[in-house]
């Protein structure tokens, strides 16, 4: 097992090195021919920067951006210039609040739906219609009614986190083995105790799977939501750097979004491992 892990890690490093190498070679400045040198001069005359900097940024530029932003992640130079950690913190805060609110609604409601086939059938059409709506489609409505861009962002996260958790909770609760419920019945276990000691642990793996999907979607949506509402957050950072035409910073932000998303998913994977039981 262990040698295999080493081998796969080594291979991963090699693939990364190869990718960066190809990227580096592809973005090398073109050999300066006479004509292009003339063009360069012309460009300088027109007040433009050199041709090299307007092309796709080479990996070295990204490296510089990484060093610059990770070297001082907490600085705050006004609304349009904040450290990467502060921007990520804003995004994570919105995602965290929206996700927790969604969990507070989805898990109890999912319990009710899962335990009552009647309520399940009654609510099913609404869930089926609301579920496929892109969370961003709610944004104008949220901005109009809430009149606060920050809370609107949280609302969008709430609405997109809701469905997977709701559906998985209902599914998990409805699928609790009949035998376990029968044991609880023959032992005259009270409904609240049954909910917490039998149904919740039995459905926990399914519920956490739903939460993991929700968190994944929330992290996807927050970037787009922050691009729309602006102000703070990693999505706003990406949009702001695009407006500055600072592509190395955009690529750096993309990398950070990926890394944070991976960390969040890993967190839920650990939670999943913790609640999963072997039968």
């Amino acid at each position: 097992m262990k040698p295999d892990t080493w081998k796969s890690a080594l291979l991963s490093v090699l693939i990364a090195a190869l990718f960066i190498g190809v990227w580096h070679l592809a973005t090398l400045p073109k050999a300066a021919t006479a004509q292009s040198a003339a063009n360069d001069e012309y460009a300088v005359l027109l007040g433009k920067t050199s041709a090299k900097q307007t092309g796709f940024p080479p990996p070295l530029e990204i490296g510089k951006a990484i060093v610059k932003y990770l070297g001082d992640p907490f600085y705050d130079h006004g609304p349009n210039d904040k450290g990467i950690a502060i921007q990520l913190g804003h995004s994570l805060g919105r995602v965290g609040i929206g996700f927790l609110l969604a969990a507070l609604v989805a898990i109890p409601l999912g319990f009710t739906i899962g335990m009552s086939p009647l309520i399940y059938r009654a609510l099913d059409p609404f869930i089926q219609v609301l579920k496929p709506i892109s969370p961003l489609a709610w944004m104008p409505l949220a901005l109009y009614t809430i009149k606060d861009s920050n809370i609107s962002g949280i609302f969008v996260i709430f609405i997109c986190s809701l469905w997977p958790m709701l559906i998985n909770t209902a599914f998990g609760v409805a699928g609790v083995r009949r035998d376990w419920l029968n044991v609880a019945r023959t032992l005259e276990v009270r409904p609240l105790r049954r909910a917490f000691t039998v149904i919740l642990p039995a459905a926990a793996p399914t519920i956490v799977t739903g939460a993991r999907i929700s968190m994944g979607i929330a992290w996807l949506v927050i970037v787009a939501a922050e691009m729309l509402v602006g102000g703070t957050g990693i999505g706003y950072f990406v949009w702001n750097e695009w407006n500055n035409l600072a592509l190395p910073n955009v690529i750096f932000a993309i990398l950070m979004i990926g890394l944070v998303g991976m960390a969040l998913d890993h967190l839920f994977a650990m939670l999943q491992k913790w609640v999963t039981y072997a039968e």
Binding site: R177, D179, W180, N182, V183, V198, P201, A202, A204, Y277, A278, E279
Partner: peptide
């Protein structure tokens, strides 16, 4: 119960 019905958690 025939299937023992123990709670696996």
């Amino acid at each position: 119960f025939q299937s023992h019905a123990l709670m696996p958690w």
